[in-house]
């Protein structure tokens, strides 16, 4: 089965300044795929090209193996970074309009509006004007607008930006629910912590160019030091497989010598009957990896 979305050597420039250079990635059915990068890296440009709002200068974008066709837009739900609604209109009018633009007929669209408003316990705002709703409420309406037509693919551009902790959790739960229902989700964000928590795979972009691409767990492993974060009643200098160690607070980060794996350390500690209260492989955070890549200080894996 071909990937849901496939980008092949995409190039886009604005006024002779390259915005996206040679971007290629695949998004598979049912996964949560993160497009990660700092502000201005080219994420929104990439997404706008994906849904045919702007055209790439060169390269190809495929949906299920074919070029985007008119009807394909109806299978894509979209939450743009520049979020807006018709402020003067009533909630149900706005949602019905967006549902109909995604190909639903009138009665189905109205039924969908009722269903989702009930699901999010918002039936009472149905006849309110959008401008009379709180920001959090408007956020929910925008999420409904993105999925009301039952899309196969949901594209969320910076879904976490500007949210308070309550709404941030709401959006995260929303993405989990989409994944559980089998939808393919592509999200772009500069918030690396969220990608670590939600995404299966990622595409990291910096200055229009791909700097990382692959499964999140593998990338983290790949870019991590061979280190363990541990708390134990032992003199760390005595441990033969440790090259160096740093203590920060009540946990100590120990760096294994080349040729040793965490299991070797764990076995040695068990043999020595050392009391261990905490033992965890110390992965580098995506943020660290990103910063290191950008600064050109990446360790060779």
């Amino acid at each position: 089965m071909p990937p849901v979305i496939s980008l092949k050597s995409i190039y886009k420039s604005f006024d002779q300044k390259a915005a996206v250079v040679d971007a290629s990635f695949d998004v598979d059915e049912g996964e949560v795929f993160g497009v990660l990068g700092p502000n201005g890296a080219g994420k929104t440009t990439l997404i706008r090209m994906l849904i045919d709002i702007i055209k790439p200068d060169s390269g190809r974008i495929l949906f299920y193996g074919h070029a985007l066709e008119t009807g394909d837009k109806d299978t894509i739900g979209y939450l743009p970074e520049e979020r807006g609604l018709y402020k003067k209109q009533k909630v149900h009018e706005v949602l019905t309009y967006f549902a109909r633009l995604k190909g639903m007929d009138g009665p189905a669209a109205r039924a969908g509006v009722t269903h989702y408003l009930d699901l999010l316990e918002m039936a009472d705002v149905r006849n309110k004007r959008v401008e009379d709703l709180s920001k959090g409420m408007q956020q929910k309406i925008q999420l409904i607008a993105a999925i009301i037509a039952g899309p196969r693919i949901v594209i969320l551009d910076e879904p976490f930006s500007g949210l308070d902790p309550v709404n941030l959790r709401l959006v995260r739960d929303f993405i989990w629910a989409l994944k559980k229902s089998g939808k393919t989700v592509l999200l772009s964000t500069h918030m690396m912590v969220q990608v670590e928590a939600i995404c299966d795979r990622l595409f990291m972009i910096y200055d229009g160019r791909c700097v990382l691409y692959g499964p999140v767990a593998e990338i983290k492993r790949q870019f991590s030091d061979n280190a363990i974060l541990m708390r134990a009643a032992v003199d760390y200098a005595r441990i033969p497989m440790i090259g160096r160690f740093t203590t920060n607070g009540d946990a100590t980060k120990v760096y294994l010598k080349s040729g040793f794996v965490p299991l070797d350390l764990l076995q040695w500690l068990t043999e020595q009957k050392v009391e261990i209260s905490y033992f965890e492989q110390a992965y580098a955070s995506l943020e660290d990896i990103f910063v290191n890549i950008v600064k050109g200080k990446t360790r060779e894996p």
Binding site: I51, I53, P80, E82, G84, Y86
Partner: peptide
């Protein structure tokens, strides 16, 4: 109004 409301992108994700 649509530019002011930042709604254009959402519209263009559904229609040409």
């Amino acid at each position: 109004v649509e530019k002011g409301n930042r709604i254009m992108e959402l519209l263009l994700s559904s229609v040409t």
